[in-house]
Simulated scan of single mutants.
Amino acid sequence: MDTPELKHRTFQFSLRILNLIKALPQGAGMFRLGDQIFGSATSIGANYRSALKAKSKKDFIHKIATVVEEADETCYWLELIIHGEILPKEKVQDLLNEAHELTAIFASTLKTARQNLNS
């Protein structure tokens, strides 16, 4: 997947997360949950864009590592929404699948970047 496609994909993921947050029920803890998933999910694309402007290979690796962490954290929040029965699984599963795919893509990118740095 090339850079423009991945930038678009992460941006679309952020938009889809915004719609998920709008669907969260009102009540205790839901604002905080929405805030947490908003932060981690939108950080994926934002930090990826930042990585593309990295000043060095080490800077790129550091920023991509942050992307991996944010993507994995987003998986956690989505799993919590599903297993906590906050929203129906069918409304969340596609987003969780995408979060897992993004995590895998960026983890692979990180692994390759680390190998290239050490070779």
Score class of each variant (00 low, 15 high):
E79G: 11
L78Y: 11
N47Q: 13
D94Q: 06
L20T: 11
K22R: 15
L18H: 12
S108Q: 12
S50D: 10
L78S: 09
E85H: 13
V67T: 10
G39Y: 09
R16S: 01
Q12W: 05
A41C: 14
L87D: 07
K63N: 09
I64H: 12
E85M: 02
G45E: 12
K89G: 00
L96Y: 07
Y76M: 04
Q26W: 02
K91H: 07
S56A: 14
L6M: 13
E98N: 04
G34Y: 14
T10Y: 13
G29H: 12
R32W: 02
R32P: 01
S14M: 08
I105T: 05
L20V: 10
L80Q: 04
N19T: 14
A54Q: 05
A51T: 10
K55E: 11
I44F: 12
K55M: 06
S40W: 02
W77I: 02
A41W: 15
D59W: 15
G84C: 06
H83V: 01
K7D: 03
K57C: 00
K7S: 03
I17R: 00
S14C: 09
L20F: 11
D59Y: 15
G39C: 09
S40Y: 03
Q12V: 09
L80G: 00
L18E: 07
K53F: 04
V67I: 11
H100M: 09
S14E: 09
F31R: 08
A41Y: 15
A54W: 11
C75V: 15
L96D: 01
N47G: 06
A104S: 06
L87W: 12
T66H: 06
K91T: 04
K89I: 05
L96A: 01
L102P: 07
N19C: 10
T66Q: 05
D59R: 15
I81H: 00
K55R: 15
T109C: 00
Q12A: 03
S56K: 15
L52Y: 11
E73G: 07
H8G: 00
I86S: 00
I81Y: 00
G27D: 03
I37M: 05
L87Q: 08
P25T: 00
D72S: 12
L18K: 15
R32A: 08
A41R: 14
C75N: 14
K91N: 06
L15W: 02
T10A: 08
A41D: 09
L80I: 09
L24M: 03
S40D: 03
L20W: 09
I82L: 05
R16K: 12
S56T: 15
E79N: 14
L6V: 11
R32Q: 05
I61Y: 09
G29E: 10
G45N: 12
L80S: 02
T109P: 01
K111L: 09
L15F: 00
E5V: 14
T109G: 00
T42G: 06
V68W: 07
G27Y: 14
E69K: 15
A71L: 11
H8D: 05
L110A: 04
K55I: 07
A107M: 07
K63S: 04
A54F: 10
K89V: 11
L102Q: 01
K57R: 08
S108L: 03
L102Y: 08
D59M: 13
N47E: 09
L6Q: 06
E85S: 08
A23L: 05
N47C: 06
